[in-house]
């Protein structure tokens, strides 16, 4: 498989506070990596480093793909201003921002792609709506479309299932499964029970990165990784197992 990017001894943080230390990671084409870890463990920070939004304090990142923008990204929290005067359609097209269509207007193909994505995520009827009139889950779908419209080689989703209902969450994983035939996917989720049944490999981030080359992970391993997350069972049916009641 073709390598997409590599992190070598990367340490990162904010104002000299190290949040991630000595991360080594390679991402290959068609990878499907589930990233888990406690709140504040550094998952979002890792994504920011990969996206080039946060400069590492140490170490280096190498991108092995030549296209200017090969990563599609769905952010975790949207600090987005819901009263901003923009329509759903424009938000989706903004995913093409780094392709040179900025000055000229979008061509037929782009618009067709946008319409397809609207259809796939079931929000065609919202196309012309201002974003202020959407619910949290609908907004999340719009952001998924925005991440996908550039046909990225790598798709990064930071907790995509927050806000979305069970039905769409299920559809989302189905969609990701199909998309994985064309692109690598990194998905951050706290729903370990569900993601382990879809992803190919698991990474645990808790200041350090422990990359586990399979989707099977046991409680002992989590303990070794210093990754305080309970549960773990497996199966082909997505399910969530709650921690034990006392």
């Amino acid at each position: 498989m073709e390598q997409l990017l590599e992190l070598k001894n990367v340490s990162a943080g904010y104002d000299k506070n190290i949040v991630l230390s000595d991360v080594n990671m390679k991402v290959f084409d068609r990878d499907f990596i589930g990233v888990i870890g406690p709140n504040g463990g550094g998952k979002t920070t890792l994504v920011k480093v990969i996206l080039g939004l946060l400069k590492p304090l140490k170490g280096e990142i190498t991108y092995c793909v030549n296209t200017r923008n090969f990563i599609g990204y769905l952010p975790q929290i949207n600090k987005i201003d819901s009263k901003f005067p923009i329509t759903v359609y424009d938000v989706i097209l903004s995913g093409l921002m780094s392709q040179n269509q900025l000055i000229t207007s979008f061509n037929k193909l782009d618009k067709q792609k946008a319409d397809e994505l609207l259809e796939q995520t079931g929000i065609t009827h919202l196309k012309k709506k201002p974003i202020g009139e959407l619910s949290g889950g609908q907004m999340q779908r719009v952001f998924l479309c925005r991440a996908l419209i550039s046909s990225p080689r790598l798709l990064i989703l930071d907790e995509p299932s927050s806000f979305v209902d069970n039905k769409f969450e299920h559809e989302l994983y189905g969609l990701l499964h199909d998309l994985n035939k064309q692109m690598a996917i990194i998905i951050i989720s706290h729903d370990v029970g569900t993601i382990t049944s879809y992803v190919k490999t698991i990474a645990c981030v808790n200041r350090e990165l422990h990359y586990h080359q399979s989707n099977i992970i046991t409680e002992e391993q989590l303990a070794d990784y210093n990754c305080p997350i309970q549960i773990i069972t497996h199966g082909h049916v997505p399910h969530t197992v709650l921690e034990h009641h006392h």
Binding site: Y73, D81, S94, S98, Q101
Partner: peptide, 21 residues
């Protein structure tokens, strides 16, 4: 000329930065 860049940066600055704008 730069309508779309202006719109996108204003809407989501971080996303624009991730796209190397």
């Amino acid at each position: 000329v730069f309508y779309r860049i202006i719109l996108y940066i204003s809407f989501d600055e971080e996303f624009a930065r991730a796209h190397k704008v």
